[in-house]
């Protein structure tokens, strides 16, 4: 924890289903809180000013930039980080699809993209490629050129809808979409 130079505060919230109660410096961002005080190092900190999307988490079921949210603002909320997606040793279908389609190289942007797409697919289970691209437009990936990410999202959407086996080849040019 950083040195509390001003009056510290107690904050309570639920992180990946677990109740946490910590004493924090009010300037502590939610991203630092999750990483350093809760051990959720899957929360990646990129630009720290709301541009790159790497630190995206779910706050009460909606995406939030954890670097643009103070820990004290998340008082009483339910947070889900990438650590909360898998079911034990079993990857979430979205994670599985990213793995299958090589939707990541270095993996730095991946946690933020997975959570962004979780929200996207909850609201729009059958997005077009354009909608997928718009949906992830707030998440910067410097490795993949996005095509494999779009392929993975399209495939995961199909699996989550229960309409396919997710065997898409990932050419990104399927004219039926």
């Amino acid at each position: 924890m950083s040195t509390p130079t001003r009056t510290g505060r107690n904050v309570s919230m639920t992180v990946n289903g677990e109740a946490v109660d910590r004493h924090v410096d009010p300037r502590r961002t939610l991203s630092d809180f999750l990483r350093k005080d809760c051990g959720a190092t899957g929360v990646h900190v990129g630009c720290e000013h709301g541009v790159c999307g790497a630190c995206t988490v779910l706050l009460d079921g909606r995406t939030a930039r954890s670097c643009c949210t103070l820990a004290v603002q998340a008082e009483g909320s339910e947070i889900t980080t990438v650590e909360g997606l898998a079911d034990g040793g079993e990857l979430h279908p979205l994670q599985e699809a990213f793995w299958k389609h090589h939707g990541l190289q270095c993996g730095f942007c991946t946690p933020g993209i997975l959570l962004t797409v979780t929200e996207l697919l909850a609201g729009n289970p059958d997005p077009t490629d354009d909608e997928i691209r718009e949906g992830i437009s707030g998440n910067i990936c410097r490795c993949t050129g996005y095509q494999f990410i779009v392929d993975a999202v399209r495939d995961a959407a199909e699996i989550l809808r229960g309409t396919g086996t997710g065997t898409g080849t990932g050419t990104g040019t399927d004219p039926t979409r």
Partner: peptide, 9 residues
């Protein structure tokens, strides 16, 4: 305005 994630907050 920004992205959905920004507009959520």
């Amino acid at each position: 305005v920004g992205h959905v994630t920004i507009r959520n907050r």
